[in-house]
Simulated scan of single mutants.
Amino acid sequence: MQDIETGAESKVDLLDLNDLRIFTYVAVLYSFSAAAEELGISKSSVSRSIVRLEALMGTQLLNRTTRKVKLTRAGNVLKDRGVEIMKRIGETIGYVGGLGLAPHGQLTICVAADAGLEEHIQQVVLPRFLERYDKVSIVLRFTAQKSELRAESVDVALSSGPTHPPGSSRFVTMSRWLCASPAYLDHRGAVMTPEDLDKHDIIAIDDREAHMAPGLSNLLVLDFLKDPHPRLNTNDMAGARSLALRGLGVVCLPEHLCKTGVQKGELVRLLPDVVLRPLDLQVSYPSKRSAAPSVKAFAELLKASLLSASSSTVSEGQALQASIEVRNGPSGEVEN
């Protein structure tokens, strides 16, 4: 028994935690290629890590075929343990790093370009945050590259769409509104029913990564559009709003991007009773500093701000609770 324990201890000493981390990505995604993309490393690096880990464990963890990866019994066990170990390590690093400290130092934020948050973060959230926390400096990046959202230097990563990095969690859900300018509607006619949209120019936000047809049919619960091809297609949400304001068509936007325009009479909300699929924003903390005061403070302020800007998606109690959290400051906390 002592020999077995001694052998296990020696393997722990030899274990490279990065190999374990890479294995958990392969195990969760069932894919060497997807794991390599998520981690921002080469597929050959992933393969070498798995080989080293299997040699150390003395057993096969994965069954590789031409196209797929399947976990062995040992692989399934290590997957469950590995995910838990990585989670605890991240929590520990973040907790110890934030003990007894006010928000300070550099905070790196990376936001997916298709999240539509550029304007809101730069014009609403950052001015408030920097005024409140004068010892924090910000590195802000907006990107269309998924790999940048997973860089280990990133403290807060925000993404949208159906596919998110492993370990990400739902941050906030935003409702979407269908809008057009008064001038456009005067020229092209009112939109009284969903079927009327077939007669109108559609400004679509390109959503290729969601593997959905562009246009509005990917957003509406009822697929009533005969022609899903838009007149205009852009990957810039703020740009899509500008096009709609100039009277170039009908657009579907997150509420926080069009609510003010509707209130000012610059846009008209169409078909308010039609249910649109909401925009789910996800958050992840690649640097493992989720418990750091600056990270928590920014995340809480952004969340409260979005809930306030999109009040129709949440109860008054939820918005009030988020505002209280911000006022009080951060709380402790497969294919090959």
Rank of each mutant, 00 (worst) to 15 (best):
T108Q: 14
H120P: 12
A151E: 14
L225S: 08
V124F: 01
L39R: 10
L222K: 14
F129R: 00
E209H: 02
L53H: 07
D207Y: 00
H164G: 08
T143N: 07
I203C: 03
T143I: 09
A180P: 03
Y133W: 15
L78I: 05
L17Q: 07
G7R: 11
H164V: 13
Y25S: 13
V221M: 10
C110L: 05
S45I: 05
T65D: 05
L107D: 05
P214V: 06
H187F: 11
A322W: 00
L301M: 09
R188P: 06
E118S: 14
V314Y: 07
K70W: 06
T72V: 02
R132N: 02
G97R: 07
G7M: 07
A34V: 00
L71R: 10
E84P: 04
L78G: 01
H120V: 15
V334P: 07
E5M: 11
Q282P: 06
P228E: 06
E118G: 13
E333H: 10
A151Y: 08
V191L: 07
V111P: 03
S315Y: 00
S47K: 09
H164E: 09
A297H: 01
L29T: 02
S49P: 02
Q318I: 07
R277Q: 08
L281H: 00
E54Y: 04
H164D: 10
V251A: 11
P162S: 12
C252Q: 08
G40D: 09
D196V: 15
K199E: 11
V77M: 09
C258D: 11
E152H: 14
K70S: 08
L71V: 12
T173Q: 12
M174T: 03
H200N: 04
A299S: 12
S181G: 09
S181W: 12
M57L: 14
L99S: 05
E119R: 12
M192E: 01
Y184V: 04
P103M: 05
S305T: 10
L185V: 01
K226E: 15
R88Q: 08
L243V: 13
A35Q: 01
Q106F: 04
I93K: 08
P103L: 09
S168N: 15
Q321P: 03
K303G: 04
D198I: 11
G249A: 09
K43Q: 15
D196S: 15
E325W: 08
L267P: 03
S159P: 06
C258A: 15
Q321S: 14
I85Q: 01
I138A: 02
E333S: 07
E300I: 01
L248W: 00
K199L: 14
V275Q: 10
S159F: 01
C258N: 11
L307Q: 10
D236C: 03
F298L: 08
P254G: 08
S47E: 15
K288H: 03
Q145F: 11
G247H: 01
P286L: 03
I85A: 02
T24W: 13
K296L: 06
R67M: 09
D196H: 15
S323V: 03
L20M: 07
L243F: 12
A291C: 03
G82N: 07
L71S: 10
P194Q: 04
V124I: 15
D273N: 13
D236A: 01
N18H: 12
N76Y: 12
A319F: 03
D19T: 02
A27N: 05
S168D: 15
T6Y: 04
D236F: 08
I85Y: 03
R241M: 12
A304E: 00
T92E: 02
A36Q: 00
D155Q: 04
L279R: 02
T234W: 10
G82Y: 09
